[in-house]
Design a protein around this nucleic acid. Sequence first.
DNA 1: TTGAAAGCGATACCAT
DNA 2: ATGGTATCGCTTTCAA
Lengths: 335, 335
Amino acid sequence: MASSSGPDSSRRVTIHDVARSAGVSRQTVSRALNGKDEIERSTKQRVLDAARELGYRPSRFARGLVRQDTTTIGLVIPDLRNPFFTEVAASALESARARGWHVVVYDTADRPEEELGTLQVIGSQVDGVVGYFSCAEDELDRYTRGMPMVLIGREHRMARFSSIRIDGEAGVHAAVAHLVARGHTMIGMLDHDNRAEPSLRREWFTAAALAHGIDPGRVAGAGQSADGGGAGLRALLAAHPEVTAVFTFNDIVAIGALREARRLGRAVPADLAVIGFDGLQLGALMEPPLSSVALDTRRLGALAVEQVGRLLTGADPLPPEDLEVRAELRLAGSA
Amino acid sequence: MASSSGPDSSRRVTIHDVARSAGVSRQTVSRALNGKDEIERSTKQRVLDAARELGYRPSRFARGLVRQDTTTIGLVIPDLRNPFFTEVAASALESARARGWHVVVYDTADRPEEELGTLQVIGSQVDGVVGYFSCAEDELDRYTRGMPMVLIGREHRMARFSSIRIDGEAGVHAAVAHLVARGHTMIGMLDHDNRAEPSLRREWFTAAALAHGIDPGRVAGAGQSADGGGAGLRALLAAHPEVTAVFTFNDIVAIGALREARRLGRAVPADLAVIGFDGLQLGALMEPPLSSVALDTRRLGALAVEQVGRLLTGADPLPPEDLEVRAELRLAGSA
DNA sequence: TTGAAAGCGATACCAT
DNA sequence: ATGGTATCGCTTTCAA
């Protein structure tokens, strides 16, 4: 029972219809529409008129089939409303546009089932994929067949994948060092609250803390939102009232912590120093402006697009050491 | 294992290659790949193996040509990094996803030439378009032929266009009324700084001010950014030091004004009341939280997608009175 | 300048 | 269960 009970009368207008209406052949129509010069002015005009009259629009599929030039990449993002991903997406769009590529954006709303759904349909819509994925690698593989894929912020095992590494080790180390230099010894962390696996950022923090002889155990989980950050800070301070500085999983959480600190009557940075992670532009609007271990999101997006491009064209892919974005401490008012 | 499998020959792997490699016909390959049941297990497996071996991926164009089911819409946004447009985009993506549609996103970076470039290529990539445009209507028309188009926040003349109206009149009136009720009589506005045409929001402000017997002339222009808002506020206060309340073109500008007020030593809302426009989620993170004439961006995106869908399928388009998003005053701490 | 015919790569409808 | 053939809508040779 194939066809939807669509507007029967309005069957698609094809190049053939235009040709018949203008009393020429299909090729002539094609010429007129594509601005070729081997055509008489009057003929061209007649065709153009007929086309407009009939409301003709070329089928992108038919056209794409014969002129194999357009590239479209898929960008998969967990949550476009999260400013971090917004920045990454915007950067990816920029890079793609510079190459004349089109980008289909999929927001998986942080839901695994949406991610799978996306993976299933994406294969028949784009030439390559860039983005964030949470599902198991073999699932990724199964759903995307031979598609070039660049994973952001996640390691891969299979050779067919490529990934952009986020290296925050030095940046987090610098952050902790800075706090220590300011006299802090009780430094806590607000990690994400997905306890399935500890975050890399947590590991970096732990290592950096230990390197400075600081107890890395003052950690609380926080939902990925400002509210989550606020609640997380409350929990952290309840469990460890001695904490005077906090490093957070990301800037959104840090911003929530900032707000919560204010509500608790703790001055920042005097009573509580806060350092986030990501380096969102948003942080500069806070009071005080947020210090953060900053990522160059522009480079991140550009790198991902560049790499998927290389996979696409068969050019030499960038080597792993170039596929790395280093985060560095950017101090503002909050610490 | 995978080291040898390279896309050495530049020619595309087609269904034909897979068929030959597996020793079956093309249709059988199609069956195997699309999970039809009229096929023997062993055959299917053989085909699948061959496909994987060759790195075969079906052409989306060929597939789209024969199964005319996928719809793709284009979303044109002036600046994805602007939180307002982020919200609209996210909402549009949500609505599209709910319908199983794909969305190609174009960020025109606020540049007219990018907008034209986008219009030119968009025609052959999507079935319909939703978004923000700044160019003249006849240009819009010329570049997009018979494509269904929904313009957001902008009126149209030609019948082929459809548009979503932003109605902030009542909301702005309420904002001014609120300020007046709080005793403010010297109310300024930070408009956008594109002096080509006064903004609708400015007109609403003027009308509301006059209705309350307030001089609507205390206006300064501001760039569309927090920094612009800060500079704008400085300019406004320099020209009109008596101002005690300010309504801004949008929330980003308002946020900049908030920050600038703090720097100038003006307490908000005590010394200076601020009301923005848009109702960004971001506003809630400010100190104090931003009062704003809020737009339901979710509805905005949903409406645009719904309408382009109707135009696409030939269903009855929504009537103009339904294509309207009303802004309403949402009070927080800043006024 | 124009037209006829041959694909582009896949699926669907019949045969077998 | 499998294969032939027509077809989707368009562009590209190649003739006329």
